[in-house]
Design a protein around this nucleic acid. Structure first.
Length: 284
DNA sequence: CTACCTGCCTGTCGGC
DNA sequence: TGCCGACAGGCAGGTA
């Protein structure tokens, strides 16, 4: 499940295989991944022919491939989207959705997506920052991320802490896995009411989110259920670094109590019942 | 404006 | 053995 670290691994991997290369042909094998390109698959293909890629960029979980024309290919991996680099003629992946062929002798770039929550679209003038994602907050690794603004915005919200961490208009890039891991590191419960938190506590949880995502990035990300691999098809190793996510009934690495799985926000949340007790001020 | 819910997708797995 | 529901979950778009 790609969150910020996994998307960054993919961005770095794509850099070597797209930057400066001229697109010869794009093939859309399934229309759904280009559904957000309203002009349709044929228009998507036609616009890209002959264009040259610049260096891939990222904000949060969004990735885009700027073009020298000033436009961009905007992408989101969703739950199961993958970019793969393959030699021309290699067998198609079962869930291959879009293929990029190049004018040189090098390999193809392929977008593979089992569940098709992800997708690609053509962003006019989007090389710097696609207008489609202008509403997405900067992520915690963005040098221009405004921490004071974040603290103030979180405290204004009447909600629970995990909801705030997952809200892409407050901070981007954090998903279910790293939200749970950051909460565990900060010894905070997911339902901690944000409007009663002290500014320093909010800075702390943000610091933990940054640290856990940086640690994951260093080892190639988290490949929890094999739906995430890098552009060469390799898994990341951070699953071993997870303290809570997916660790139901395993001992808390800090206190030994069994990790608990709870339904929250129509998904699973994992926490240590001792390190992260239900707070006095809670919002579910 | 904020807060929160639902639909979108497919493959896997457990229960019966 | 096969069928069915639960589950995985980010985000757009909707409601109140």
């Amino acid at each position: 499940m790609p969150e910020l670290p996994e998307v960054e691994v993919v961005r770095r991997g794509l850099t070597d295989f797209t930057t400066g290369r001229t697109i010869d042909a794009v093939e859309v094998l399934h229309p759904r991944p280009v559904r957000r390109h309203l002009a349709g698959p044929d228009d998507f293909v036609a616009r890209l022919k002959g264009q040259v890629f610049a260096t891939p960029a990222r904000r949060g979980k969004y990735l885009w491939l700027p073009l020298e024309s000033g436009d961009a290919v905007l992408t989101h991996l969703g739950m199961s989207g993958q970019f793969r680099v393959q030699p021309v003629g290699a067998p198609d992946e079962k869930h291959l959705r879009v293929r990029f062929r190049f004018a040189d002798d090098g390999g193809e770039v392929r977008f593979v997506d089992q569940r098709m929550f992800g997708g690609l679209s053509y962003s006019e003038g989007g090389a710097e920052l696609p207008g489609e994602i202008a509403h997405i907050a900067r992520d915690p690794f963005d040098p221009l991320f405004d921490e004071d603004l974040f603290v103030a915005a979180v405290r204004r919200r009447k909600t629970g802490l995990k909801r705030a961490l997952l809200d892409q208009s407050l901070v981007s890039g954090v998903g279910n896995i790293y939200a749970d891991e950051a909460l565990w590191r900060a010894k905070l419960h997911y339902a901690r009411a944000t409007d009663t938190m002290k500014p320093l506590q909010i800075r702390e949880i943000l610091r933990h989110a940054r640290e856990v995502m940086a640690a994951a990035l260093e080892v190639g990300g988290t490949s929890f259920d094999a739906l995430y691999v890098n552009v060469n098809g390799e898994s990341g190793y951070f699953e071993r670094g997870l303290a809570t996510y997916g660790q139901e009934n395993s001992p808390c690495p800090r206190c030994g109590r069994p990790i608990r799985r709870e339904a929250f926000m129509n998904r699973s949340s994992y926490r240590c019942p001792k390190c992260q007790p239900v707070p006095r001020h809670a919002r579910w």
